[in-house]
């Protein structure tokens, strides 16, 4: 599948934003992160909004985007839109609570914002997981993957902000835990898609299996088309293997180690370590999200390539 930059950016940025909102909504009202929380909230909303706007750029008719919230009964994309919009309400209330220093409101709005963040990321994951023609996405580990990556990147960002605000080891510890589990999950996912059998074959796609093996003789057209550009993208196996290693190292392992270092050191070194960790994590996630598309294959290519 073609890794459109706008969508790769959307899942990375919005994912991190919702993760940050989730942890902030839960931890700040309990006093587990230092500072007022407004900076973290602003960063979360900035990431979320930038991601959503970028995903709208991907549309053929962005000015009609509002229509996309109408079919929540059947469509996960629609549900994602509804959840994203609804989540703004408790998120803004949380900001108000931080501003006027209303702990009770902060507690409730924080919980609701956290729930909204989980719901939105869950819907995003389901958009992909519900697509049967793409076996690498139609997989039980895809939604947990979206949630874990979002939780991890959000925790790293919160840990960085907390370190600058003068302490609080809780977000850093969460970053370590979520980073380690996201890495394990991702490895399990890669192993699963590498060993899973195809869902369909050129024989079942053409009904011709009863004659014998089927191969393409002449293509239906000699130039490109929308299908080939959108679904025909494929990445060389050796590049994928390298990129997986880079994503694991830079995106997960190093940030986790840096967070560990930060917990041990504290103070300014911790803030610097976590800043580097956050940059690495986001960079690694961009690669990982790109791979998520580049490694996915669509059944329509059976007709073109067998």
């Amino acid at each position: 599948m073609n890794p459109a930059p706008s969508i790769v950016f959307f899942t990375t940025a919005s994912g991190a934003g919702y993760g940050l909102l989730f942890w902030l909504g839960l931890l700040r009202p309990l006093g587990l992160v230092p500072g007022q929380g407004l900076v973290a909230l602003a960063l979360a909303l900035l990431l979320i909004t930038a991601g959503l706007l970028s995903s709208m750029l991907h549309l053929g008719n962005p000015q009609r985007a509002w229509r996309a919230v109408s079919q929540w009964r059947s469509s996960w994309l629609s549900r994602e839109g509804v959840a994203a919009i609804l989540t703004y309400i408790p998120a803004l209330l949380l900001g108000l609570a931080f501003w006027i220093d209303a702990p009770a409101l902060a507690l409730i709005a924080g919980l609701l914002a956290a729930a909204g963040a989980v719901a939105t990321v869950y819907c995003t994951g389901m958009i992909y997981a519900s697509l049967k023609p793409i076996r690498q996405w139609h997989h039980p580990l895809v939604v947990p993957g979206y949630l874990a990556l979002s939780a991890f990147s959000g925790a790293v960002l919160l840990a960085m902000l907390a370190a600058f605000a003068g302490g609080g080891a809780v977000p850093a510890i969460l970053a370590i835990l979520t980073g380690a589990s996201a890495l394990l999950l991702k490895r399990a996912y890669w192993q699963a898609i590498d060993t899973a059998p195809p869902i369909a074959t050129i024989e079942s796609a053409t009904t011709l299996g009863f004659i014998g093996k089927v191969r393409q003789l002449d293509p239906p057209h000699t130039e490109q088309n929308y299908l080939l550009r959108e679904m025909g993208f494929r990445i060389a196996r050796k590049h994928a293997a390298k990129l997986r290693l880079i994503a694991q190292g830079a995106g997960f392992a190093l940030p986790v180690l840096l967070a560990l270092l930060a917990v041990l050191l504290g103070g300014t070194p911790a803030a610097l370590a976590l800043t580097l960790g956050a940059v690495l994590a986001i960079g690694g996630l961009l690669i990982e999200r790109w791979l998520m598309f580049a490694e996915a294959t669509h059944t329509v290519m059976l007709y073109y390539r067998g």
Binding site: I202, T206, Q216, L217, D218, P219
Partner: peptide, 8 residues
Amino acid sequence: RVHSYEAG
């Protein structure tokens, strides 16, 4: 789109 295949 009209494809053409060889089977068997």
